[in-house]
Amino acid sequence: MKSLRRLTALTKAGVVESLQFRLGTFVTLFANLIYLALVYFLWKAIYASSGTDVVNGMTFYDTMIYLILATAIFNFLEMFIVWDMSRAIQSGEIIMHLLKPMRYRKYMFWSYSGSLVMSFILTFIPTFLVVVIVTKGAVPVGWNLLAFVLSLLLALVINYNIEMLVAPICLYTESTWGINIVKETIVLLLSGASIPLAFFPETFRKIVEFLPFRAVYDIPLTVLLKKNGTDSFDGLINAIVIQLIWCVVLTICGNLFWNHAVKKITVNGG
């Protein structure tokens, strides 16, 4: 009980911090809407030129929902851990985090949780509602919503673990920009966030199936849209189990790597 209170205190601090009024938040929100409109026009033109309504099992609305929510999940999950950790290493501040009576990985997760809760409420839910209303019933509403939320939670853990697996590389090199851009590019392409995995050529898709990235975007979104066999109970369980396996595997890898990397820390003064 005591430890739970300790953790929720970190969540609360994050909520308060992100509630500060920021002009940037509103401008970015507006720009996101414009960006979504552009995605809409692009795919409308693409589908209009194709001559058929369904391409690889995806209708125009399916593709739109998939891509818009992928962008929403991207904004929701974006954590900047690589940047924060590299800054903490360069300023020496990381020592303060390591001295805390809590495991560093755990501490980081819970101090991010507050801003995650806020961005979920302030950006993800409104986007989701707009999508449901605008697409007029193309989003199936039922048990899949519950499964989607569960799947999204697992995606959050997986994404956090990917971040924490990449960020300690900053302890070996100071190339933060480079590391971050490589991570982001790989995750966005191979998770289906830039183009739905359903459109990938057969062999390419087979390879991507065996990578953890699709568990961040593709699995939650296919669960929501009831595609790829997830409308049956077995298919749904299958998808969730894949996510669970990745959670475990990545957590173990992340722990091992962090324990190794933390010995590398050298702080100059401070």
């Binding site: 090199t173 100071e174 920009w177 480079g178 490589v182 590019t185």
Partner: peptide, 16 residues
């Protein structure tokens, strides 16, 4: 190292 990683990152974004 930074130079190499950043260049690699840039090539990756173009490739993607």
């Amino acid at each position: 190292a930074d130079f190499i990683i950043s260049t690699f990152g840039m090539i990756m974004t173009n490739l993607s």
